[in-house]
Design a protein around this nucleic acid. Structure first.
Length: 417
RNA sequence: GGAGGGGUGCCCGAGUGGUUAAAGGGGACGGGCUGUAAACCCGUUGGCUUAGCCUACGUUGGUUCGAAUCCAACCCCCUCCA
């Protein structure tokens, strides 16, 4: 599966993005001949995107790198239905206000990865609510519904699994695939889109769009999916101590984002470097060849490069430097997450447990208490064994802060104000 | 509409009157080993002003000295019948 002519497919292939495609040869042909417009759909179901969306975002980035035009489709219309794929329960329906707020909040993340504008290869963002909201039922049934066989729809994984497990599937959700297929055709008319990409779980939906395009409009569309990314030990990617790995800085700091990549499993480093950084292949090959504890070098590069794309080179290097001081020199680093507290509170005395909750390192006093009991808590790098310990102004170091540590990896600073 | 089965902690799942903040597993977190890895071993895993108190086994009420466990009504899910 190599020997592609087009720069885009070569890029995707050597970096490991290709899982399945509808007509690779035809697509390769097209991509090497003209500027192709391609899209991926994203549901505005949260305030921020997370690493689970990274594959899609990076594919669009590669597309643009190869000189083609990326379209970010926001599923403002379809997210009011909910994709039934792989879920046993119906998704909660979002209000229009939620969706609008989420869209605005997500947009800035895309701008980190893609250059938006009016040029031929500039990215654009569209919302399928713009056309789905206006659809009329009878015309839709006649124009689109006639091309869908219920027998076939029932055979798709997204539907079949629900039925087999005897989980309810509403008619609303059953329509999702029709609308997603319609999106593809509509985008081809509006923006000349020829290619839809997505995760492997979207294969069925993408194929539907391709067929609908042929039947409704006689146009030839293409589909390409990427593999579902799990860690080498099989876990779904994208969890940290703090929860999901969000892309919005206000939900996950660049420090935590850097840490997420730094903690990649050995066996994943090469793969992730290819997928999530812009480093040239030769450089990645060099890093991949490292053995044993040297792999840590590769992980640092991965963390810094991945963070630089999202939060900027400066923030990435600051995170790297903070990590170096904290973990390698066990020294003080002022760029650790810092929480300000009124100086008066410290003068009056603050319980260790409360301090850890305040700093966001523990969710409750109980958790902090257990952490102390387990010997996991340090203040100014000294172990704490007494949950009744009270921190005061005398605990403030010469740097003007109190350093709190939970375990070896989680640190924060308390700063009197 | 009728008959039966079921709703337990983040998830799965045991538990049928007190010894149950609730077995076991998964996940998560912490410790050990290491390299801020994996695997493995150990520990923790409702909240609080923690020798105690509060909240919790679909919801609401009841029986009882005492209920996740018994009773009633209601809500939701599943199976079979209409």
């Amino acid at each position: 599966m190599s020997g592609f002519k087009s720069e885009f497919l070569k890029l995707l292939d050597e970096r490991g993005y290709i899982h399945q495609a509808s007509d690779l040869q035809g697509l390769d042909e097209l991509l090497s001949k003209e500027t192709v417009t391609a899209y991926i759909g994203f549901d505005p179901t949260g305030k921020s995107l997370h690493v689970g969306h990274m594959m899609g975002i990076m594919m669009l980035k590669r597309l643009q790198q190869a000189g083609h035009k990326p379209v970010v489709l926001i599923g403002g219309g379809t997210s009011r239905i909910g994709d039934p794929s792989g879920k046993d329960e119906q998704r909660q329906l979002l209000t229009d206000e939620d969706i609008a707020a989420n869209m605005a909040s997500i947009r800035s993340s895309f701008e980190r990865y893609l250059a938006f504008g009016d040029g031929p290869a500039d990215a654009v963002m569209v919302n399928n609510a713009d056309w789905l909201d206006e659809l009329r039922y009878i015309p839709l049934l006649r124009d689109v519904g006639r091309h869908f066989s219920v027998n076939r729809m029932l055979s798709f994984d997204s539907v079949r699994l629900r039925l087999e497990r005897e989980q309810p599937l509403s008619f609303l959700e059953f329509n999702y695939m029709i609308l997603q297929a319609y999106d593809f055709v509509e985008l081809s008319k509006r923006l000349g889109v020829r290619l839809q990409m997505g995760g492997s779980d979207q294969w069925g939906n993408i194929i539907n769009g391709i067929e609908l395009g042929r039947r409704m409009a006689g146009i030839e569309l293409f589909g390409l999916t990427c593999p579902l990314i799990t860690t080498a030990s099989g876990a779904k990617m994208g969890k940290t101590a703090a929860g999901a790995v969000w892309l919005n800085e206000d939900m996950l700091s660049s420090w935590d984002y850097w840490q997420f990549w730094r903690n990649t499993e050995d066996a994943d480093v090469g793969r992730f470097l290819k997928l999530f950084t812009d480093l040239p292949m030769e450089e990645i090959a060099r890093l991949e060849a490292l053995k044993g504890s040297e792999i840590n070098e590769a992980k640092k590069v991965l963390a810094t490069e991945a963070t630089a794309i999202l939060h900027g080179r400066k923030a990435a290097e600051e995170a790297a430097e903070t990590a170096r001081r904290t973990f390698e020199e066990h020294a003080f680093a002022s760029a650790l997450p810092t929480v300000e507290v009124p100086a008066q509170e410290l003068e009056e005395g603050m319980g260790v447990l409360a301090a850890f909750v305040r700093a966001g390192l523990c969710a409750s006093n109980g958790e902090a208490r257990r952490a102390v009991t387990n010997g996991a808590v340090k203040v100014n790098d000294r172990s704490v064994s007494d949950p009744h310990l009270v921190l005061g102004i005398t605990d403030v170091t010469s740097e003007g802060v109190i350093k709190l540590s939970f375990g070896r990896k989680k640190h924060a600073l308390l700063k009197p104000r």
